[in-house]
């Protein structure tokens, strides 16, 4: 190798490198731990949320539910979006067992006994918000029992996971 000739033994500097490296790693671990406490979002179903009641307090929550199309209201003056979501299972295996996401969402919207939650979101009305979409909301529960979302993600599985076309066979 090019510089092999000028190589010098360096017994003491090895510790220097290890200590330096450990310091950096420790700093990152500290950042991870402190950020985890500050910005963790707790995944829950609406059922779990309502079972826990006030004990969730001021924590940041992430909920998923089926959008009830009739409840979507948009106040375009204040860009405030309000809609209701119905409880769906959070576990993928359970969703699959009940016939896939589309079936689960459909069942949740049809079933009047499901636990429900009113979601309030300030912002642009998303393109995918419609009946039987899956809404994934991040935010906090307000004193009025409504969920104030600061982030809203939507998923419409019906169109893409249906195996057989509806208009087929004509």
């Amino acid at each position: 190798m090019d510089n092999a000739a000028i190589e010098r033994p360096a017994s003491g500097s090895r510790t220097k490198f290890i200590v330096g490296g450990l310091l950096i790693v420790a700093a990152v671990v500290y950042l991870v731990i402190s950020s985890t406490q500050a910005s963790a979002q707790y995944f829950m179903t609406i059922n779990e949320l309502q079972a826990k009641g006030a004990s969730v307090g001021d924590r940041e929550l992430r909920l998923s539910g089926a959008v009830l199309g009739d409840t979507i209201q948009y106040d375009s003056q204040n860009l405030r979006l309000t809609f209701t979501i119905a409880d769906i299972p959070a576990d993928n295996a359970e969703i699959e067992a009940q016939g896939g996401l589309a079936a689960v969402l459909h069942a949740a919207v049809q079933d009047p006994t499901r636990a429900k939650l009113v979601v309030v979101y300030d912002g642009v009305m998303p393109d995918l918000l419609k009946n039987e979409a899956q809404a994934i909301v991040t935010g906090k529960i307000g004193a009025d029992g409504k969920f104030y979302a600061k982030e809203l993600l939507l998923k419409c599985p019906t169109k893409y996971e249906e195996a057989v076309p509806e208009q087929a066979g004509k």
Binding site: V28, L31, S35, A38, S39, A40, Q41, F43, A90
Partner: peptide, 23 residues
């Protein structure tokens, strides 16, 4: 987190930004 505490916890963009920003 679900495996160890039974509670599923996720992180949003601020978590990533805070940690990776200095790096």
């Amino acid at each position: 987190s679900e495996l160890f505490t039974g509670q599923k916890v996720t992180f949003g963009p601020p978590w990533y930004e805070r940690i990776t920003g200095p790096l």
